[in-house]
């Protein structure tokens, strides 16, 4: 399994990670190496094996429908990079 620079760019965009163009090839090499390591999995037949998403073989626990959280906007927005009038600001989004 070997990843091309184009594939690295495509995944980097999906993950919204800016990667220095000089380093794309190095990432492609590292990621290809890791994928090769991972590809050891393909040697074994798992046709009849049930996937295991979680170590706990249990059902989800639910909570009662109660309002337990109250306004903490001030505390939460103290650590925000850019806010105005109680809103988080981002560069203009065009729909």
């Amino acid at each position: 399994m070997s990843l091309t620079s184009d594939e690295v760019n495509r995944i980097a965009f999906l993950a919204r990670l800016a990667i220095d163009p000089d380093k794309i090839d190095a990432y492609a090499k590292d990621l290809s190496g890791i994928m090769n390591f991972i590809d050891e999995m393909s040697a074994i037949d798992t046709e009849t094996v049930l996937p295991m998403a979680h170590p706990l073989d249990q059902a989800q626990r639910l909570r009662p429908d109660e309002v337990t959280e109250h306004n903490q906007r001030e505390a939460f927005q103290k650590i925000a990079p850019k806010v105005e009038a109680g809103l988080y600001l981002v560069p203009k989004v065009i729909e």
């Binding site: 990843l3 594939e7 690295v8 995944i11 980097a12 999906l14 993950a15 990670l17 990432y27 990621l31 890791i34 994928m35 991972i38 999995m41 393909s42 074994i44 798992t46 094996v49 049930l50 996937p51 295991m52 998403a53």
Partner: peptide, 24 residues
């Protein structure tokens, strides 16, 4: 990047699902 790749369209079964089966 590895995680994004393993979950991306066309690779999910070969990687993520396979890994879950090996986990079992």
């Amino acid at each position: 990047l590895i995680g994004t790749y393993a979950l991306s369209a066309g690779y999910y079964d070969a990687y993520y699902l396979k890994a879950q089966k090996i986990r079992r």
